[in-house]
Amino acid sequence: MPKIVDHDQRRLELVDATWRIIAQHGIEGATMREIALEAGFANGALKPYFPNKDELITFAFGHVFNRTNQRIAGTSAGKVGLEALRAFCQEVLPLDDDRIYEARIVIPFWQKALTDPAKAELHETSMNQWRSAMDGYLREARARGEVTASTSNEDIVNQLLSMLLGAQIVAAMSPGAHLPAQLSAQLDAYLLLLHAESRAA
């Protein structure tokens, strides 16, 4: 009887293998042959799923984005306002090995997106989803009196995104440069300013 193949599961196995190879050897070391070997497949077995490494990296980006969103949904459940916003940001910050590995997937995708309109659109759609979620948390926080800064929600969201994505770059390039405790402290200091501004006035 022929073996039934779970194609979605196989794709995820290939993405996980890509993740490990990039984390260990960088994007240039993530050849299709190395990825197949890491996943325990024959080299030709990748072709039906990902004809080339470019498509594999795109799928890996989507997988990382979905993983992050799943973590956010778990940690922000039952939270509102500033507490929910902090939980959101904590799941994007590279605070452990898994999230550093995620950054190492995201960065090569960004490089590809610079010259690939489809990838650029995928990235912008993903970031707009995050912007919308963060804006919602900020609206709740303002309604609860937790955020009183005169800075617009749009500017706050963009500042936070710059902080989060910048931290991913630093973590991927120099993982020992910023310890998780430092990144969390920087986030908390910024969030405190969103309320402290009006008190100082």
Rank of each mutant, 00 (worst) to 15 (best):
M1F: 08
P2K: 13
P2C: 05
K3N: 06
V5E: 14
V5S: 10
D8V: 07
R10W: 05
E13H: 04
L14Q: 11
L14C: 11
A17Q: 04
A17M: 04
A17G: 06
W19H: 15
I21F: 02
A23K: 08
E28Y: 04
G29C: 03
A36S: 09
A36I: 05
L37Q: 14
E38P: 05
A39Y: 02
A39I: 08
A39H: 03
A42H: 06
A45M: 04
A45W: 02
K47Y: 15
K47C: 03
P48W: 05
P48Q: 09
P51A: 08
K53W: 10
K53I: 01
K53H: 05
D54V: 08
E55C: 02
F59Y: 15
A60S: 14
A60E: 01
A60D: 01
F61N: 02
F61E: 12
H63D: 12
N66C: 08
R67P: 04
T68Y: 00
N69V: 06
G78N: 08
V80M: 13
V80A: 13
L82P: 00
E83G: 10
E83I: 11
L85C: 01
F88L: 03
Q90T: 11
E91Q: 15
V92A: 04
D96V: 05
D97N: 13
D97M: 12
D97V: 07
R99A: 12
R99T: 14
R104Y: 03
I105E: 02
I105V: 15
I105L: 13
I105P: 02
I105D: 02
I107D: 09
P108L: 10
P108E: 07
F109P: 01
K112L: 07
A113D: 09
A113T: 11
A113L: 06
L114P: 02
L114C: 11
A118W: 07
A118I: 13
K119E: 08
H123I: 12
S126C: 15
Q129P: 00
Q129V: 05
A133Y: 09
M134A: 03
M134N: 00
D135I: 06
Y137F: 15
R139N: 08
E140T: 11
A143H: 07
A143W: 02
G145S: 13
E146F: 00
S150T: 13
T151Q: 06
S152P: 02
D155F: 00
I156T: 06
V157F: 01
L161F: 01
M163C: 01
L165G: 06
Q168R: 14
V170K: 11
A171Y: 08
A171C: 10
A172S: 14
M173V: 07
S174L: 11
S174W: 07
S184A: 15
A185P: 08
L187Y: 02
L187C: 10
D188Q: 03
L191V: 04
L191M: 12
L192C: 05
L192Q: 14
L192G: 04
L193G: 10
L193W: 09
L194T: 00
H195W: 10
E197Y: 15
E197K: 11
S198W: 07
R199P: 00
R199L: 14
A200P: 01
A201R: 14
A201G: 11
